[in-house]
Design a protein around this nucleic acid. Structure first.
Lengths: 361, 361
DNA sequence: AAGGGTGATGAAAACGTTTACAGCACCGTA
DNA sequence: TACGGTGCTGTAAACGTTTTCATCACCCTT
């Protein structure tokens, strides 16, 4: 808040809409109207204004614009971490769509810390973004649902729209949009792929109860077993989180306890697969000759190691989230509140048919 | 801009500082002062205000705050793409430091399109972030320098601070900060590592003139050769961009032309290394038994394929950029304008000493 | 030629903060 | 007891837009 006397020139200040108006010989209202595209305006005036804008290198002040009630020019996304490939791809999708719509993207990271998540949501509330996209796998208990419902209402009050991305819906009376992808279907399909190749001892890596994503994947795995009339051995479901070193640990511990009692591995995601693969190799087991393996996500490591996996439309998730939110901002009624995107298998080279010893005497 | 009659209640509206003031029985000025921490205030008042904030679930309006002249609460970063690991890690560093300082992070992506870069910078100018961090490798011509200088001045005028991250400085009179890392030093060190193992035919993959990053890496490579008195064969420098498929292409084309005339490969970055490795394998050459290989960046693919490489402090780049910019915002004079972070070799398992045929008759 | 409509423009009131300035009570000192 | 000082607090003026409402000029119809 620097006071400036007319005579005392303390350096240039940014150009305002008033400068543009003066330079073009019109009122600020006219400039505002022409720039926001609300109003065609007389061609002559229009030209003069645009020239003034160019000559003065004017850009609007987003704060003033937001304050005066115009719709915000930004969307927000909250993720655990930007370096994790899944989040990075979703963020990329959000970015892309935001750029197409001429909007900016605000990113917040939580490091899976609920405390920081709350703090970030508060910051987003301050910012009045058009929507806040919350992405990622979470604990699916009641406390979580309550917290999300609270976020949704607070954000709605601030003029934002909460979008849950890859999370389950909260309930009918919570003002939140949901974009999911088909975890269960993908897991079902790829488990069937293994079963068709004759594998009936499939080790599932990365079970984690109460976490929505691994839970859905396990569900697809079990359903496929059941539909193929293969007995379900709970001992084949190994608990662990969705990280590379966890995949390494799970296989190492298992093989330390004895020789493999499985012919195929279904890794909860590609990172786990990469870690598991390394552990298998260190035990002299190669993929796919000794053990078949599939993953989930179809992220960079998968192509590198020739992994058959389930493709998840990461970027499309982000883009859809933005599209839905903005469309809903325009037309409150006609837009769906929930969308589920499909997943599909990508076949590479990590699965071999089972050779049954003694089947050909 | 909805008009509200006192009687006609059209749904709740977000709490403002006025509501808080009324609820606590003080003036808005007092609330503002206490919340911004400018002023201690009387303990009793303080308590009352904070309670009112809690009870009404008040969060400040960032637009109003920004407009009224308070320093912005956000930093901005512009990258080519969020999914590219290098950018993702820098962005993560920016995120982390921003969160520590209680600030939000605005991210823009350009897809290496100068047009979009300009548009993004304009959006950032509108946003009045405290700093705008521009990261990435670029064409190092005069047009680029002019454009950057223009950005720097425009942003400075809008109250922002331009920070160039991993780019060379622009000149003394341009208001920009620079955070670099030692490309040449790292390339020198890892080339020396290969030379010490007896390799004197080292294929450099990913030369690209006028691009700052590969240029610096080639420079380190050449300097190491010279210092070790190894003749420099320009035919060993292969042109290509910094992508995985380019590494694949470069090796494939070379091997299609004849048997390898090199014993080691210095890939311009880890992605090139991954692609090159795949091409070598498809020609029946394995690493490190047949060919030694080193990379640059120390990003995820490197650990997976056991690649000896140069570690780049990606996250630290981002954090340093934010720290420098904010510090400079506080204390205009005392802070440096340019910082160079060190790089160092990470030895894994992709280099073997040369076995000279005939050296032991 | 008068009247009604239409389209472009301007004046001014918001939006929700921060902050300069002024006021006011209270305390310790002269 | 009067007086300057010291802390708190309130009043009100910015900040730069958008938007409502009013005005004005002009053209088409009758």
């Amino acid at each position: 808040m620097v006071r400036r006397a007319a005579s005392e020139n303390e350096g240039p200040r940014p150009t305002t809409i008033r400068d543009v108006a003066a330079h073009a010989g019109v009122s600020v209202a006219t400039v505002s109207r022409i720039l926001s595209g609300t109003y065609p305006g007389a061609p002559a005036t229009r030209t003069r204004v645009l020239r003034a804008v160019r000559e003065l290198d004017y850009v609007a002040n987003a704060n003033a614009r937001g304050l005066a009630g115009a719709s915000s020019r930004s969307v927000a996304i909250i993720v655990n971490s930007v370096v994790s490939p899944h989040y990075a791809h979703v963020a990329q999708g959000v970015q892309t769509q935001a750029a197409i719509e001429g909007k900016l993207c605000i990113v917040g990271t939580t490091g899976s810390d609920p405390e920081r998540e709350l703090a970030t949501v508060q910051l987003m509330r301050e910012e009045h973004a058009e929507c806040v996209i919350l992405v990622g796998n979470v604990v699916a208990d009641q406390a979580y649902r309550d917290r999300m419902a609270e976020y949704a209402r607070a954000l709605a009050l601030a003029g934002s729209q909460l979008v849950l991305c890859g999370r389950p819906p909260l309930g009918p009376d919570v003002p939140a949009l949901v974009v999911e992808y088909d975890n269960t279907g993908g897991a079902y399909a790829i488990t069937s792929h293994l079963l068709s190749a004759g594998h009936d001892r499939i080790l599932f890596l990365g079970r984690r109860d109460n976490y929505t994503t691994p839970e859905s994947r396990v569900a697809g795995y079990r359903k496929a077993l059941a539909d193929h009339h293969v007995e379900h051995d709970p001992g084949l479901e190994v608990e662990g989180s969705m990280e590379r070193h966890e995949g390494y640990r799970m296989i190492s511990e298992r093989l330390a306890a004895g020789p493999p009692d499985f012919t195929a591995v279904f890794a909860g995601n590609d990172l786990i697969a990469a870690g598991a693969r390394q552990a298998l190799r260190e035990h002299g087991l190669s993929i796919p000759d000794d053990i078949s393996m599939v993953g989930f996500d179809d992220l960079p490591p998968a192509a590198d190691i020739g992994l058959t996996t389930v493709h998840v439309p990461h970027e499309e998730l982000g883009r859809t989230a933005v599209r839905m939110a903005l469309q809903r901002g325009r037309d409150k009624s006609g837009t769906p509140e929930r969308v589920m995107l499909g997943t599909h298998i990508v076949v590479r080279d990590s699965v071999r048919p089972v050779v049954r010893s003694g089947s050909r005497p």
